[in-house]
Design a binder for these strands. Structure first.
Lengths: 158, 158
DNA sequence: CTTGACGCGTTATGATATTACATACATAGA
DNA sequence: TCTATGTATGTAATATCATAACGCGTCAAG
């Protein structure tokens, strides 16, 4: 079963699973998961949320790491480059990838009430986009697909 | 024929058409196209590009309008609210809407070489996205769909 | 002719992100 | 082991993007 933010799940297990996948994925590519990078990923994994770079930085600083923006941005950029995190343009923020290692071009579903961010399988969306672009002669290389709305939990009056 | 950035077109006519549509659209809603707002729209229309708020501001300032950020942001926000311009999240920038008045939820195609921004019809894309979201119980309210890639002109070695 | 809504101008500040350079650390080769 | 090399981290300074808060001018309704 996939990590799935919108429903009850054992979050500890969910995070651990992602961390393991992340480690495996990195080992395969020869990149190093240094303490700062690992810690940043853990911080992102604490919630199914997007966090701003400065929020992450504050956490790092409190734990004795550097307290200047590049410390956070470098780790975040590393995670994004290696597919362990995503940048959410709409929020100027970052979220842990819930499916590291798998090739995927996700769409992000952002709940405007609880700020939860989920990844939806976007292959069909991407196909539609590629088609629309092709009609205009445009070749899509990278796409950001981000939706703002209501997650199941916030939709129903609990 | 639609305004279509990626192909040769009479740009003067293209801009004029959009301005007329914009005026009509605003008149219908009772909102006012003041000099600053009009000028900002004209500036955005000069190129099929996204411009940063500060770029617009510089232009305004050079023409004797205010030279502080809120002057630009207010006009830009107004245009966006009234469907005359779009914010391109990926670029932290704004582009004139090429189909004002028409209800549309566009996808943006951004050429990474010439920076041209075009709007593609996104109804099928949006449908696919709604579907993927619905599978997770998520209700999409607003979506940003932005693609980075190569426009037809930049794709072919001229 | 007042009043109230709106648009514009300005100051100040906040939030996000990068450049540039210095220091430390790991590791492979001599 | 020693040292050279690349990579990671730390820090200062600055660039870029965005908003809050306030005051003034204009214009139309009452």
């Amino acid at each position: 079963m996939d990590p799935q933010p919108f429903h009850d799940h054992d979050h500890h297990q969910c995070s651990d699973a992602v961390m393991s996948q992340a480690e495996a994925s990195l080992a395969a590519s020869g990149a190093r998961l240094t303490p700062v990078r690992r810690r940043v990923l853990e911080i992102l994994l604490e919630a199914h949320r997007a966090m701003g770079a400065y929020d992450v930085l504050q956490r790092l600083a409190a734990e004795g790491y550097g307290n200047q923006p590049p410390v956070a941005y470098r780790a975040l950029d590393f995670l994004v480059e290696h597919g362990l995190a995503h940048r959410i343009q709409r929020l100027n923020a970052f979220a842990a990838c819930m499916h590291p290692g798998e090739a995927h071009a996700p769409a992000f579903l952002i709940c405007r009430v609880c700020d939860t961010v989920a990844e939806a399988p976007a292959a069909p969306v991407r196909a539609a986009l590629d088609g629309a672009a092709a009609d205009l002669g445009f070749t899509v290389e990278r796409a950001s697909i981000e939706a703002l709305g209501l997650c199941p939990a916030c939709r129903e009056p609990s």
